[in-house]
């Protein structure tokens, strides 16, 4: 086993465990913490896939911005932890879990067909996934989607401000 494989396996186990904990915990803050752990392990997986820049961006954007926003809102609202772990009774919950396992099994069957000749990773050079190569692609072939993403963020920002601001007296 190479170092990469060990690292990727450990990160995978951490990712699955933390994902399960996200939906198992009652307290939203603890859930959010486990989601951060999940995002971190996915960043490690990106590293093993040759995405150095991607891993850094994952940490900065997801862990550093999105999840901080989540935690900020949770602590700001500070809702009391809910008594029930899940929305429906034990029978429905068990059924949902069973269906989930079944669904994963079905997906795995399909995925396993990749295991033959089509499942090998291409060999890539030093520059694969570097900031330079990603930037070049982003500003040439994907320039138009990139600009649209900028517009999307702008709209989201305006939307968030409008939605979250308190209606003061004298406004309609």
């Amino acid at each position: 086993m190479s170092l990469d494989t060990i690292l990727a396996s450990a990160a995978s186990i951490a990712a699955i465990f933390s994902a399960l904990m996200v939906i198992w915990q009652r307290n939203a803050v603890i859930s959010a913490l486990f989601l951060v752990l999940n995002l971190g392990s996915v960043a490690v997986l990106f590293l093993t896939l040759g995405g150095e820049f991607l891993a850094a961006v994952q940490v900065i954007v997801y862990a550093g911005a999105i999840m901080v926003l989540f935690l900020f809102v949770i602590t700001l609202l500070n809702p009391a932890p809910l008594k029930e772990r899940f929305a429906s009774g034990p029978v429905m919950t068990g059924l949902t879990f069973a269906l989930g396992v079944l669904f994963v099994a079905a997906l795995m069957r399909g995925i396993m067909s990749l295991a033959g000749a089509g499942g090998v990773m291409a060999s890539v050079g030093e520059e694969y996934g570097s900031a330079r190569s990603i930037g070049e692609l982003l500003f040439t072939a994907y320039l138009y989607p990139f600009e649209l993403a900028g517009v999307l963020l702008m709209v989201a920002m305006v939307g968030a401000v409008v939605l979250a601001r308190r209606q003061t007296a004298g406004e309609d």
């Binding site: 990469d4 995978s12 990712a15 795995m108 995925i111 396993m112 295991a115 090998v120």
Partner: peptide, 11 residues
């Protein structure tokens, strides 16, 4: 890890 493992994890 092979591709299959990553896709399985993703699923």
């Amino acid at each position: 890890m092979p591709l299959v493992a990553y896709i399985g994890l993703s699923a």
